[in-house]
Design a protein around this nucleic acid. Structure first.
Length: 764
DNA sequence: ATAGGGTTAG
């Protein structure tokens, strides 16, 4: 078989298994020693998107690869993107043993462009070889500078050229767009002697990167002769910037224009369908794909997988994933992992994460954020520690957003500070999201001054920045600051959303700002049930319990447990047994297994001195088989979270902690502390042991901190259930007796104890 | 041979 015969044959090959057969045939006849033939095969691997393991097998079975073979391999790797730049560099080291240097102008451009950021290192090398004046080499150098910066170096090369081709201009323009330099990009565009469809498309993409869809569209509409790539650029501009519906409308135009979609087009359109508001575009797209018997690339299939997952068909998504077989790349694995993580199936997500061959930063991010968003903050942080221990891949800003907010949820400021150091160490860019996560961290750790400082340092703030800081003020009972911040937000013309209204109403309610809160509530165009719950809480807290009931009765929407919960809590505070019993009866219908409702009702009776009813509620609760939720408290000490629960002795310092608790108990009683009767009754009933009275989790946590920390340091305790009155009283007194500042956080509210007082004011 | 478009994480 001659080379030209082989060429004719390989062009007809349309899948990898045929390619595999041909390779086996060549090896059998020892033809794989002939480098031209191997080169041809590897080029076909690029065309057919053969998996890297197989392509590399062809290369590795070649005894003496020529520069041609190396070049084909570089081209293959560069086609796969920059994920394989390590292999490229190590191949380059092997290539230096070849002596046909005359091919330098042929191999260097593709080598430089396929080795990612390492390509910059070849600049000096090619100058030494005297290849600096070759237009292709120069072009590669320019493109690597424009990709990995500094773009000014690209410009120097550009300026030194005796004459510039159209390609050089285009390259330079996209270089400026990549680093966000709109001014220079536009300047060059206007200066250009002639433009091509590539130039115009680069402008469309550039404006899309700046999220300026109007200008992107303006340039797109001006393209004299559009091609698939220009359509794709505009389609993805819409799809990537939150306008999937617009993308699909444009796709209709494209279909009518006569330009045929390619694999890239389908990938964009599929991903647009996965972020649409409803499923009907996705359904009709699937129909269209089947009708036209479209062959999707592995990228299109990955987009399809993601679409099924986001539309709730996890099973079909998994089928697509499994069908991908050896064509799975890290993106497909990541898409499947995040699909599982999104629905809270962390076991399956972790299973894939552990199995996947090459984890990149997105894989780690998907898994870490999966834990973080499903309430597993500690696991998120543990996994992040594994990531930093491996030191590969390096964390990026997405990683840090998840990790920092996980620290916030736990109230882990020490670990949070360690994470902040990592930000500096890896020079991770402080995006708006990172700033927002820092505001969240400091708010949740009780450092509102730091939260405010971060907020004020931000050049651009978004809706989330405002919402997070307002939520911080709400949790700290600082209603006026919250109201002021909402006014400022309107000045900056950032529109409040439903979250803003929820947190601002919470803030007003905690600070008992009736007038301000009511004004906010009245300004909400279409309040949802959460807002009703907040306003009922607001009215109830200040004593307008009947008005609160009227709101509930007059609601346009069906009340949920939060609404009745607010009403019950208000009835407890103001001893309105009649309303409390009404609210509780509704709650027992809506949430028969929520122990909190029984406790609230029982505490209402307790505060009214109706002890018989207290006992009766406890009995009902026991008979209904409702178990009290476990009220963990935890303290961070020396980078670790120490967890406590009432009566538990599993902590290694338990003996010391209980001894200190008993000692403190004596001191407190001498100072006039009387254990809350409701607590006594509850503890005796549940633990059946007198000695257990007072071993609430938050007291254990405080004692632990007193035992291990320095005398002047602030104690920070987080509790995952509402703090009871008994603990509140006890801790107030402890702060005075021990001269300590104690910050206690329950789910969403802060208590700053100092010198026998609490910042929240006594709200029992 | 060189320039413009694609999937995943927050």
């Amino acid at each position: 078989m001659s080379l030209s015969q082989l060429e004719g044959l390989v062009c007809k090959i349309c899948n990898v298994s045929q390619l595999r057969q041909l390779h086996a045939h060549l090896v059998q006849n020892s033809l794989h020693h002939q480098n031209q033939w191997v080169s041809l095969l590897i080029n076909q691997c690029t065309r057919l998107r053969a998996p890297p393991t197989y392509t590399r097998l062809i290369f590795d079975s070649t005894p003496h690869p020529s520069i041609h073979v190396f070049t084909s391999m570089f081209k293959y790797y560069s086609f796969l993107g920059n994920v394989h730049s390590n292999q490229v560099v190590s191949l380059y080291q092997r290539m230096q043993c070849c002596d046909d240097i005359w091919l330098g102008t042929f191999v260097y451009p593709v080598l430089i462009k396929s080795s990612g950021s390492a390509g910059i290192a070849f600049h000096a090398h090619v100058l030494k070889l005297g290849l600096g004046s070759d237009q292709y080499v120069r072009n590669a150098i320019m493109s690597v500078y424009s990709k990995y910066g500094p773009v000014d170096h690209a410009r120097e090369v550009f300026d030194e050229m005796p004459e510039r081709t159209l390609v050089d201009w285009n390259n330079m323009i996209s270089g400026y767009w990549k680093c966000g330099n709109k001014v220079e990009a536009c300047k060059l565009f206007d200066m250009m002697p002639e433009k091509s469809v590539v130039t115009w498309t680069a402008m469309v993409t550039g404006y899309a990167r700046m999220k300026d869809l109007e200008n992107a569209r303006r340039y797109f509409d001006n393209i004299p002769e559009k091609n698939v790539v220009s359509w794709n650029a505009m389609l993805s501009a819409y799809a990537q910037n939150g306008s999937p519906e617009e993308a699909l409308r444009l796709f209709e135009d494209m279909m009518n224009s006569g330009d045929q979609p390619n694999e890239t087009t389908w990938a964009i359109v599929i991903s647009a369908c996965s972020s649409c508001g409803n499923s009907s575009p996705a359904n009709s797209l699937v129909q269209k794909l089947n009708q036209k018997r479209i062959h999707l690339s592995y990228i299109g299939k990955t987009a399809l997988l993601d679409m099924y997952a986001k539309r709730g068909s996890l099973k079909i998504a998994r089928e697509v994933f499994d069908e991908l077989g050896v064509y799975k790349n890290s993106v497909s694995w990541n898409a499947m992992i995040s699909a599982y993580a999104r629905v809270g199936n962390l076991t399956s997500a972790r299973d894939l994460f552990d199995k996947m061959p090459e984890r990149n930063v997105v894989s780690w991010n998907s898994m870490i954020s999966g834990y973080a968003q499903n309430g597993q903050s500690a696991l998120a942080i543990d996994l992040f520690k594994d990531m930093t221990a491996a030191n590969d891949p390096k964390p990026d800003e997405v990683t840090m957003v998840s990790v920092i907010s996980a620290c916030g949820h736990l109230g882990a400021l020490e670990i949070g500070n360690w994470a902040i150091n990592i930000l500096a160490k890896h020079r991770i860019s402080l995006s708006i999201s990172v700033h927002n996560s820092l505001i969240f961290l400091y708010s949740k750790c009780g450092s509102m001054d730091d939260a405010k400082r971060i907020f004020n340092e931000m050049k651009t703030k978004d809706l989330v920045s405002y919402n997070t800081l307002i939520a911080g003020f709400a949790a700290h009972g600082d209603g006026m600051e919250a109201v002021k911040l909402m006014a400022k937000m309107k000045e900056e013309s950032i529109e409040p959303d439903r979250v803003t209204y929820t947190v601002i109403l919470t803030a007003c309610s905690h600070a008992r700002l009736l007038e301000e809160g009511w004004k906010v509530f009245e300004s909400i165009k279409d309040p949802d049930v959460d807002h009703y719950a907040c306003v009922v809480d607001l009215l109830g807290r200040v004593g307008k319990v009947d008005e609160a009931k009227n709101i509930v009765d007059g609601m346009q929407k069906e009340a949920h447990a939060g609404v009745y919960g607010s009403l019950l809590n208000a009835s407890r505070i103001h001893k309105r047994i009649d309303l409390g019993e009404f609210a509780a009866s509704k709650l027992f219908e809506l949430e028969p297994h929520n122990s909190g409702n029984y406790i609230l009702l029982s505490n209402m009776y307790a505060s009214a001195g109706k002890w018989d009813d207290v006992v009766r509620v406890r009995e009902t609760m026991r008979n209904a088989g409702v178990k009290k939720a476990t009220g963990w408290s935890w303290v961070e000490y020396s980078g670790k979270m120490h967890k406590f629960i009432a009566g538990d002795r599993s902590h290694e310092l338990s003996d010391g902690i209980y001894r200190l608790l008993a000692e403190l108990g004596r001191k407190l009683r001498n100072a006039g502390y009387i254990a809350d009767k409701a607590c006594v009754l509850r503890d005796v009933e549940e633990e059946e042991k007198e000695e257990m009275v007072g071993t609430h989790s938050e007291k254990l946590a405080v004692c632990f901190a007193l035992l291990v920390t320095e005398a002047k340091s602030v104690i920070r305790v987080v509790k995952n259930l509402r703090v009871c009155r008994d603990c509140h009283t006890a801790i107030k007194m402890i702060s005075k007796l021990e001269g300590r500042k104690i910050i206690l956080r329950d789910n969403n509210r802060f208590h700053h104890f100092s010198d026998g007082l609490c910042s929240c004011g006594d709200y029992w």
